[in-house]
């Protein structure tokens, strides 16, 4: 098993700085969804990770902890995530994306 980044919607949607989306070295890996936060009653949307693309470098963790001072991202073993976003289940919209969360581990 290996580590991937996991973003806490509760913490992220309270501030929604989007810094991690700008600092991830992988394209379209940390995405942003309005629905993920607002639909649950939070003020803003939240960032989330397409775990099939995450290489586990943890740069987003440093950015979230030290630049944004938000501490919303943790590295977690992929089989410890009950549900996560995968590229196949992500739909792009005009200004945001939506993701159907599924179990990231096959079988």
């Amino acid at each position: 098993m290996y580590l991937v980044a996991d973003i806490s919607v509760e913490i992220c949607a309270a501030k929604s700085c989007k810094l991690c989306t700008q600092y991830c070295p992988e394209a379209n890996t940390i995405l942003y969804s309005d629905e993920m936060g607002k639909d649950k009653g939070f003020k803003y949307g939240s960032a989330y990770v397409a775990v099939d693309r995450c290489k586990g470098c943890a740069q987003c963790v440093w950015v979230c902890d030290n630049m944004a001072k938000n501490n919303a991202i943790k590295m977690i073993m992929i089989d410890q995530l009950p549900v996560a976003a995968l590229t196949d289940n992500i739909t792009y919209g005009e200004k945001s994306t939506t993701a159907t969360l599924v179990s990231p581990v096959v079988g």
């Binding site: 989007k18 989306t21 394209a27 960032a47 792009y92």
Partner: peptide, 17 residues
């Protein structure tokens, strides 16, 4: 707007981080 649109760059074999 990063994170809200599909980028032209795709997956690649560069090192993590």
């Amino acid at each position: 707007q990063m994170g809200s649109f599909k980028e032209v760059l795709e997956e690649h074999p560069m090192c993590a981080g």
